[in-house]
Design a protein around this nucleic acid. Structure first.
Length: 714
DNA sequence: GAAATCTTTATTTTT
DNA sequence: TAAAGATTTC
């Protein structure tokens, strides 16, 4: 592969700090790899141990290792051993440092998101969930975890936190360490803090002479601190990224580090890689047209490095959801019969939950596809049997056991299997070992290769669920453990294991259906982006209590900063579009919210034609009163956590406990007087809310009056 | 145009 | 369940 002038400039710049501003498809991985190879060959005093490269995911690390190896070997077959070079995520790097260079964390065990969920559920009292007004239900556990990670990200401003928040944060952290655990949120924070106390760590970091950070636009504030420390110990730094592709804001990614890099580091050379070798000229133009609408970005112009090729770019309206899936499936079939391989086709969704809808249609048509979703695992044939058997452990019932396993294992094993299960009631064995013995005991009536594969996956996944649970709840009674696991599987497992792939895709050639986030860094011949409607892409941000409702101080004040902005969504759309090498099919249904603004924006490109009649569907413009900006609303909100400022009746209609509501109501009264005194209008609204509440219970005017008097409201 | 009421939706993911 | 958008009512 021949390098362009700018690519060569970047590869050869090994004496100054370097910022590579790389657009989509600009060959950045190749450039980084060759630069590292050059460092190793030109700098005789540099050995692989002096070189560190941070990637965004483990998967990216693997491919980076291969690329660097190829680049190094290209210069010298017997070149340096790159196995001694650190190439991986910042998180893994910190784990390595904590376990090898600190005393305190030497034997620490790391909790992943599932175990963190169990941990918070189990120790909800000790960690002070109730201080934040959270109970131990599913929803609150996730919210709690979210709040902790936001605080960890903001640790440097710890002095400005509210006392309550600091207290809960400290209890959680202490509770983790008391039990010998650390979770993902604390890995980087603790490493940063350990640098000041552990000399071994400082010595190790001083050994790093060249640091490369890929996907620098998605670095968060703590990671940036870590990078800066390494540079301050004397490393040369090279960062690579594209501020237009920052898509992880919701977990702290801050493109400002990329945008301001040259001001914050000394002696920086900037190189722009603005030729896109991936996408056809039309796709580049569509992507450019849209992303230019964003306000804060490094000014750049992406050019296509490909010749004009046969490329289809279209935006189409469909009558209904079913229509949309049918047409997409039709098109996939046409493409496939014209010689495009299935795995060169991708359908990119904004929301993971929407993937299944298209999946069903493809299944019907017999089009092979890969959609990594844990949901098929949880309804798996064998998995269900394992789960039922688990339930039978505490209450062995032969009939149920037979019903469960008949036709799956042979008759004689049904009897012996049941005897085995019945024997397990006494004795404190671990569920994991009970089940692994059970599976070894019985013989399966396999119908074919697929069954064996599925059984293995189901068994492996089931064991993992048991393991994860017992890591936190291992000391519980057998029956309590089983109840806990059943409840977890029923209510939370699909959500918590969402990102864990239980099944190895067995289709070697299949259409890829995934979220836009997952597609980052990938490329396909043909890309479909369906459901381009307002409220879907970009999504409306609705529903649920968020961390800014729990945390005080600047989190509450700056909630706009944390909520996803349209610019962020536009970056996501940009990433989706630039995955396509040749064909791009946008589609939408005309709902009352109208088509996505991104389609309208893309229509400014001459490569894309959209029926302008469709633009006329307007987003209705009611006044949509945002009562949360009213003084009374805040007052009420902080008091009860319910929507007192709005139609309180709603929560009653949906089944809130009446007495509990009344209890709230009493608390409200004290505040209400204040409201009446200080804020005229707001108080009026407040009284309206009372009316809403009462009318929802079908009370007559007289009854409302009476109730209001009884509660001293009037 | 403000307030009340009704309706819709509940992201995104790595470590 | 409950946040917040959309629509109706006053």
């Amino acid at each position: 592969m021949n390098l362009t002038e700018n690519q060569l400039r970047a590869v050869n710049e090994i004496d100054h700090n370097l910022q590579i501003i790389a657009c989509a498809g600009s060959g950045k991985t190749e450039v980084i790899s060759r630069r590292i190879a050059k460092i190793l060959s030109d700098k005789t005093d540099i050995v692989p141990e002096n070189v560190v490269c941070f990637t965004f995911t483990n998967k990216a690390a693997d491919s980076m290792k291969r690329r660097i190896e190829t680049a190094v070997k290209a210069g010298d077959e017997s070149g340096p051993d790159i196995g001694r070079m650190y190439i991986g995520t910042i998180h893994s790097f910190c784990v390595y440092l904590l376990q090898n260079y600190t005393d305190r964390f030497r034997d620490i065990r790391i909790l992943d998101n599932v175990k963190t969920f169990h941990f918070i559920s189990r120790y909800n009292k000790a960690i002070g969930m109730d201080e934040w007004g959270l109970s131990a239900n599913t929803f609150s556990v996730r919210l709690f975890s979210d709040c902790i990670s936001k605080l960890a990200d903001d640790y440097l401003n710890r002095d400005t936190w509210e006392d309550k928040d600091r207290k809960v944060f400290d209890s959680y952290r202490r509770c983790l360490y008391d039990h010998g655990f650390i979770d993902f949120t604390f890995l980087i924070l603790e490493t940063l803090l350990a640098i000041d106390t552990d000399p071994g760590l400082r010595e190790y970091l001083s050994g790093i002479k060249y640091l490369t950070v890929d996907e620098y636009q998605d670095i968060d504030d703590l990671q940036e601190q870590m990078i800066r420390k390494i540079v301050n110990f004397g490393a040369n730094i090279c960062v690579v990224g594209d501020d237009d592709q920052t898509i992880y804001q919701f977990r702290g990614s801050n493109a400002d580090h990329m945008i301001n890099f040259a001001d914050h580091y000394r002696d920086v050379v900037q190189v722009r890689l603005d030729t896109n070798f991936r996408c056809s000229p039309g796709i580049v133009d569509v992507a450019e047209t849209v992303i230019r609408k964003n306000g804060r970005r490094i000014d750049k112009h992406m050019a296509s490095g490909r010749q004009e090729i046969r490329s289809e770019i279209a935006a189409e309206r469909y009558q209904s959801e079913e229509d949309e899936w049918e047409q997409i499936a039709d098109r996939i079939e046409t493409l496939h019969s014209s010689g495009i391989s299935y795995n060169e086709i991708a359908v990119l969704f904004r929301k993971g939950k929407r993937i299944g809808a298209l999946g069903k249609e493809l299944e019907l048509r017999g089009i092979p596809y890969i959609a990594d979703s844990a949901s098929s695992f949880f309804s798996g044939r064998y998995f269900k049997c394992f789960l039922q058997t688990l339930q039978l452990l505490t209450d062995p019932d032969k009939a149920k056991f037979v019903e469960c396993w008949e036709g799956i294992i042979s008759g004689e094993y049904i009897s012996s299997g049941f005897r085995y299960i019945r024997r397990q009631q006494s004795g404190g064995r671990w569920l994991h070992s009970i089940f692994s013995d059970f599976i070894d005991t019985i013989h399966f009536l396999d119908e074919g290769y697929d069954d064996i594969v599925i059984r293995k996956d189901d068994a492996g996944g089931f064991m993992r669920i048991l393991d994860d649970y017992e890591d936190i709840f291992g000391d519980r009674q057998l029956s309590a453990k089983i109840d806990g696991i059943i409840e977890f599987v029923d209510r939370n497992a699909i959500e918590e294991y969402k990102y864990h792939s239980f099944r190895i895709p067995s289709e070697p050639e299949a259409v890829n259906i995934m979220t836009v986030h997952k597609a980052k860094g990938l490329e396909f011949d043909t890309v479909f982006i369906p459901e381009l409607q307002e409220g879907e892409f970009p999504p409306g941000n609705m529903g649920g209590k968020k961390y800014w409702h729990v945390l005080g101080g600047s989190f509450k004040e700056n909630k706009d900063k944390y909520e996803a902005s349209v610019d962020d969504e536009r970056k996501l759309f940009y990433v989706a579009v630039t995955r396509a090498k040749r064909n791009l099919f946008l589609s939408y249904q005309l709902t009352k919210k109208g088509l996505s603004r991104f389609v309208k924006e893309a229509a400014d490109s001459s490569y894309l034609t959209v029926d302008r009649e469709d633009f006329k569907v307007t987003v209705p413009s009611g006044n949509s009163c945002r009562r949360d900006s009213w003084p009374a609303y805040d007052l009420n909100y902080s008091m009860s956590g319910s929507q007192w400022g709005r139609g309180t009746g709603m929560s009653v209609r949906n089944g809130n406990d009446y007495l509990q509501e009344m209890e709230y109501r009493k608390q409200v009264k004290a505040v209400r007087d204040k409201v009446l005194d200080y804020y005229g209008t707001a108080a009026h609204c407040f009284r309206g809310a009372m009316g809403d509440y009462m009318s929802a219970r079908s009370m007559s005017d007289d009854q409302i009056l009476e109730e209001a008097k009884r509660l001293h409201i009037i």
